[in-house]
Simulated scan of single mutants.
Amino acid sequence: MLSIETIEQTLQSELAVALYFSAPTCNVCHALKPKLLSAFEENFPQLQVISIDISETPEIASHFSVFTIPTLLVYLDGKEFLRKSRHMSVGEVVQEIKRPYDMMTS
């Protein structure tokens, strides 16, 4: 079971983590997720992605101050680096993460 503690431990122990907040009723979430996952796999092999269904765990969304879906939070070296909500392009997300990620992993 996903918990705030588990996520916080992952954020501290992994170099790069993405939290993807969505819900079963969100069509945009379902259209965006496979594109993001594919781009992350291709560009950021060490990035761990955690999907969070806010309808099942609203306390996690609240803990991370997520009030709209889809929301993507990217953590690099334990610190929040990127926060995107609603309208985001996959290319834009990749472009914003690429340089710091490459510097950390090279």
Rank of each mutant, 00 (worst) to 15 (best):
M1D: 14
S3A: 10
I4D: 11
I7G: 06
E8H: 07
Q9S: 10
T10F: 02
T10K: 14
T10E: 13
L11Q: 07
S13H: 07
S13C: 01
E14M: 06
L15W: 00
L15P: 00
A16V: 06
A16P: 04
V17E: 01
L19I: 06
A23D: 03
P24Q: 11
C26N: 03
V28R: 01
C29Q: 03
C29R: 02
P34A: 01
P34H: 03
K35H: 07
N43H: 14
F44A: 08
F44T: 07
Q48M: 05
Q48K: 15
V49S: 10
S51K: 14
S51A: 14
I52N: 03
I54E: 02
S55P: 00
S55G: 09
E56V: 06
E56K: 15
T57H: 14
T57R: 14
T57Q: 13
T57I: 08
A61R: 04
F64Q: 04
S65N: 14
V66W: 01
F67N: 10
F67T: 07
F67W: 12
I69V: 15
I69E: 03
P70T: 00
P70L: 01
L73F: 07
L73I: 11
V74W: 09
L76S: 12
D77S: 14
G78K: 12
K79W: 05
K79D: 12
K79V: 13
K79E: 15
R83V: 08
R83S: 14
R83W: 09
H87S: 10
H87V: 11
G91C: 07
V94N: 09
Q95G: 11
Q95R: 15
R99D: 15
T105K: 09
S106W: 04
